[in-house]
Simulated assay, not measured.
Amino acid sequence: MDFETVSAEDFGASLTGIGLNLLVRDIATTLAFLDTIFQVKAHRISADFAIVTHEGMVLQLHADGTYHSNPLLGLVPENPPRGGGVEIRLFNVDPDVAATKAHANGHPVLQEATDKPHGLRECYVLDPDGYAWVPSRTLTPSERSQIS
Rank of each mutant, 00 (worst) to 15 (best):
P95I: 02
N79M: 07
P80L: 08
A42W: 01
E78R: 13
A42L: 04
A42H: 11
L61R: 04
F49P: 03
L73A: 13
T36S: 13
T100M: 09
Y67V: 04
V76H: 08
P71R: 08
D64M: 11
F33T: 13
T29L: 02
L22R: 12
L59Q: 04
A99S: 14
E55G: 15
T36E: 11
P77W: 07
R89H: 04
F91I: 11
T53L: 10
I27D: 00
L75R: 12
A42V: 02
T53E: 14
I51W: 01
A28N: 11
I88A: 05
V93Y: 02
F33W: 09
N79S: 09
T30N: 01
V40G: 09
F33N: 10
G65Y: 04
L34D: 05
L59C: 05
G83W: 09
T53C: 09
F38N: 01
E87G: 04
T36N: 10
A28L: 01
F33G: 10
I88E: 05
L72S: 10
T66V: 14
A99I: 07
A32Q: 15
R82V: 13
N92Y: 08
T66M: 15
V76A: 11
V58N: 02
E87C: 03
G19V: 14
L22A: 10
G84N: 14
A63E: 12
T36G: 11
L20I: 12
L61I: 04
H62E: 01
I37Y: 11
L73Y: 09
R44I: 00
R44T: 06
P95C: 02
K41M: 01
L34A: 11
F91K: 13
F38P: 03
L22F: 13
A98C: 06
A102P: 12
R25F: 05
D96V: 10
